[in-house]
Design a protein around this nucleic acid. Sequence first.
DNA 1: CTGAAAGCGCTTACAG
DNA 2: CTGAAAGCGCTTACAG
Lengths: 364, 364
Amino acid sequence: MPKRITILDIAHRVGVSAGTVHRALTVHRALTGKSGVSEPVRAAIIAEAKISGYRPNYVASSLKRKKLRVAASFPGLTESNRYFYSFIWQGFRDYAREAGDYNLELIELPFFEGEAGQAAELDSLIARYPEGVDGLVTVGPIDRRAAPALMRCAEGGIPIALACDDSEGLARLGCVLVDHDVTGRMMAEQIFSQIGPDGAVVLLAGDMLVPAHYGVVKGFEAYMADHGLSNELVKVYGYLNSEDLKLRTIEAFRKTGRFAAACCVCARGTVVMAEALRETGFAGKVRAIGSDVFDENARSLREGTLTNLVYKDPYGQAYRASRILLNFLIKGQKPLSDTQFVESVMVFRSNLGQYESGSYRGNL
Amino acid sequence: MPKRITILDIAHRVGVSAGTVHRALTVHRALTGKSGVSEPVRAAIIAEAKISGYRPNYVASSLKRKKLRVAASFPGLTESNRYFYSFIWQGFRDYAREAGDYNLELIELPFFEGEAGQAAELDSLIARYPEGVDGLVTVGPIDRRAAPALMRCAEGGIPIALACDDSEGLARLGCVLVDHDVTGRMMAEQIFSQIGPDGAVVLLAGDMLVPAHYGVVKGFEAYMADHGLSNELVKVYGYLNSEDLKLRTIEAFRKTGRFAAACCVCARGTVVMAEALRETGFAGKVRAIGSDVFDENARSLREGTLTNLVYKDPYGQAYRASRILLNFLIKGQKPLSDTQFVESVMVFRSNLGQYESGSYRGNL
DNA sequence: CTGAAAGCGCTTACAG
DNA sequence: CTGAAAGCGCTTACAG
């Protein structure tokens, strides 16, 4: 066990005080600019740190420094989104708890659709803490007003980690999301391994302006193109207006000859798709893959209306986004890659239990 | 921000010294017995800690205390097992690194088949560190001699966390494994969604004495029974002797009428199964699900010899077993459940990349 | 059984 | 720009 090098060892060897070593080595935080050490001294200290293999003890450094103020802003839990976002909050809280003793001040900022939303919440963050916020973890901009608000945070110098969606042009520390292309391809691979070459597929394609929807649809079509599949593909667009979507979905089911499989790229649409399958009597007779695991979808899978669900690991997205942010704030470490993907997983009736509430991969 | 309660706050309120509070509150470690505080004082301190909502700062406590000596013993990497166990080692190292500043002494004890193996390595551990080892993370007993050696460690008072397999009657802190029943059922669900009611299945069933093999086979059969499936099921046993297994597998493929799908419950057997499929010309013509993701199997999946692979998350098993051990040693926290399951995941060509080396879910 | 002191490796004012 | 001192919340000898 070679003794671990400390800041004091370096101070002795270079012939300066511990404080100076500290100033020279603590580049990352704050203004990222100069830290008040003359260039030659700084160089000597950094050289000595390198050759002696110095590694900071972050546990010790957290003890005396002031709290790191970390804000988490995700959609608040409502009736319709509580499944997905309760996993998101849980992922954040679990990682924050693992890092709990590192002297953090955690601020939770849920936002809701009806009210001001993500943009207002982010703007209020800066207003409420004039002394500054050290980091922010949130979801990619939920609407058009959120993107500029996020940008203002970044320009205010706040390190940001995103989950679920990225934000074009934003200088963020990292982003964790699901690979939509892989998701779409996997859906197609499963569907076309189960229906014949003349079976038609109805695809509930969501909203083409939502990257998460568009990406999955593109992946699905790319798989078909790559494998020379010429099955008929009927796309039904729509997302927010469930009643309207249902009517058009039912119509598509009825009008499509050799209707063999249905797929949906989004959570809400999957609920609609399952209802449409039940009401038209196609439930259990055609293959059907939906998106996201929550009570209603789980029931549809169990009863056989759906044959599979695609899981996008919200817990993992938030856990890892939080880890990116906190590792940077606490240890100055940037992620190996500033875009990380969680797994896209195909859920079966047999392993559904693994993805339902309570069985987080966290589960400390 | 209410000020966080410290050991000194409690000392003042109870009218004792910080040292006494420390002694009263630090029950878990060492002999778990008395800690040298009189009963009334101890009770007063514990009561005050409870009502004031005291939570220890483990970061601070790690600073001055002596190192926690933690041993990890997993199979060393050889040509044949390097895929699975490199993920295992990686999972351990990643979690150990996250906890790295908590003043740990990590001991890595790889073991190999030809030599003394797990039993000898565990026994040498006790011999080599007469001052004691604070914790051990390892795989469930790999052979008959390993179980009693593990037992000796536990009786020596070493907290143990297991990955991959459990050990009957062992007083261990926790165990992380894959749910074999779920795995077998999921394999069956996928297979029978793709073949007709008269298709026959050849199942490479491994060794009935290995719980990981037996459990998957039972799950597979349970699924068939639960769903009233009467497809012919031809089981081929065998595990270690690849040549022999291959001959018998080929024979089974050839002799089985309406041969429609092949499945294998173990990693080595899957390699044999893929070869047999290729050599008999059945590759790509029947459905085939194998076990575990590593180069050879990945190639078979990509080329179409296999249609799916089942992934048992070795990285997650070791990461979580390490977390169980270290959370106990550092924070005195026992896991919510002493048996935890990682997910059984069905891997497709489309999402294979997520499970290949380098794309650990860790990926810090 | 209990206390007082020193110290873990840093960071933070405060002087100069 | 640099140093010396104090202190973060614990744990560990050392006395008594």
